[in-house]
């Protein structure tokens, strides 16, 4: 249960972080001329945007949760399971950023959903970890 909660929180933070950063960068990019897209001024403008900081904070939270889950669960479980973030990213982009989502993208999201469901059924830990201070059990 703990693994499911931590990975769910991680992918939620990642999708929200990506959405906030994307929304902020589109707003900033929309205000500047397209030729200035890589200018230092744009970077300074981005650094002053609270949405960029919140989004970046959420992406850091994703990395911390992802890394923490690797301390007790298999990489071959955590990596595919956390890819559910792609599905959330597509849904968030459609809902919050009004981006068009093609049928191919929805099909991809469905495949990821099925893949994550299969991996989740395999259990979080199949491998005994020697020489770690605590048992990997305790879900």
């Amino acid at each position: 249960m703990r693994t499911a909660i931590v990975i769910s929180a991680a992918v939620l933070a990642q999708a929200a972080g990506n959405t906030l950063v994307s929304k902020a960068m589109k707003t900033i990019g929309g205000m500047s001329a397209s030729s200035d897209i890589l200018s230092p001024l744009l970077l300074v403008e981005a650094m002053g945007n609270p949405m960029i900081w919140t989004g970046t904070g959420l992406l850091i939270l994703f990395f911390i949760l992802f890394t923490a889950s690797l301390s007790w669960a298999d990489l071959s479980y955590v990596l595919p399971a956390s890819s559910f973030g792609y599905v959330l990213n597509v849904a968030f982009a459609r809902h919050f950023l009004d981006e068009p989502v093609s049928p191919a993208r929805w099909s991809g999201a469905l495949l990821i959903f099925l893949g994550v469901a299969l991996v989740a059924r395999s259990g979080k830990m199949k491998t005994a970890v020697p020489a770690t201070p605590k048992s990997p059990e305790g879900q």
Binding site: S76, Y77, S83, Y86, G108, L111, L114, L118, V119
Partner: peptide
Amino acid sequence: VTPLRWAGTVLVCAGVALI
């Protein structure tokens, strides 16, 4: 890595490519 994990990983891989 169980066959179930392999199957799930390949589906995820194809899904990411489609997205």
